[in-house]
């Protein structure tokens, strides 16, 4: 049993719980970043002795996507905040009915 894998599990769980628990959109984004990093950690760990480096590149693209996601997500958060004067995701129930 590798301790790195335990770390990745803890990171994932912490990110997940952050996403669910925190009443703030920015904290949700932070949680998502944590979960993505848990995935990255696994990718790098499993690719540590692989000369083909495919895991590394996968992690690289994940980082890229994470950046995009963070940029767009934060833009949306700002826009929502301007519009609704709140950044609590559960209060945005416009699509409920």
């Amino acid at each position: 049993m590798e301790h790195t894998l335990i770390l990745s599990s803890i990171l994932f769980a912490a990110g997940l719980m952050t996403v669910i628990v925190k009443r703030n959109a920015i904290m949700v984004l932070i949680g998502i970043e944590l979960m993505l990093n848990a995935a990255n950690l696994n990718l790098v760990f499993f690719n540590r002795n692989n000369p083909a480096l495919s895991g590394h590149f996968f992690a690289l693209f994940v980082i890229v996507v994470a950046v995009c996601e963070a940029a767009v997500g934060l833009a949306i958060v700002l826009r929502v905040y301007k519009y609704y004067q709140t950044s609590i995701p559960d209060q945005l129930t416009e699509l409920k009915d």
Binding site: A25, I26, L29, I30, E33, N40, V44, N47, R48, N49, H56, A59, L60, I63, V64, A66, V67, A70, A71, L74, V77, L78, Y81, S87
Partner: peptide, 28 residues
């Protein structure tokens, strides 16, 4: 053995995403 990833991590995350988040916190 993933030095490139580590560099990208620091550059992109610490340099990019975190700045975005801090700005988001400030603005919201």
């Amino acid at each position: 053995n993933a030095e490139f990833i580590a560099v990208t991590q620091i550059l992109v995350y610490a340099g990019g995403v975190l700045v975005l988040i801090v700005f988001g916190i400030m603005l919201s």
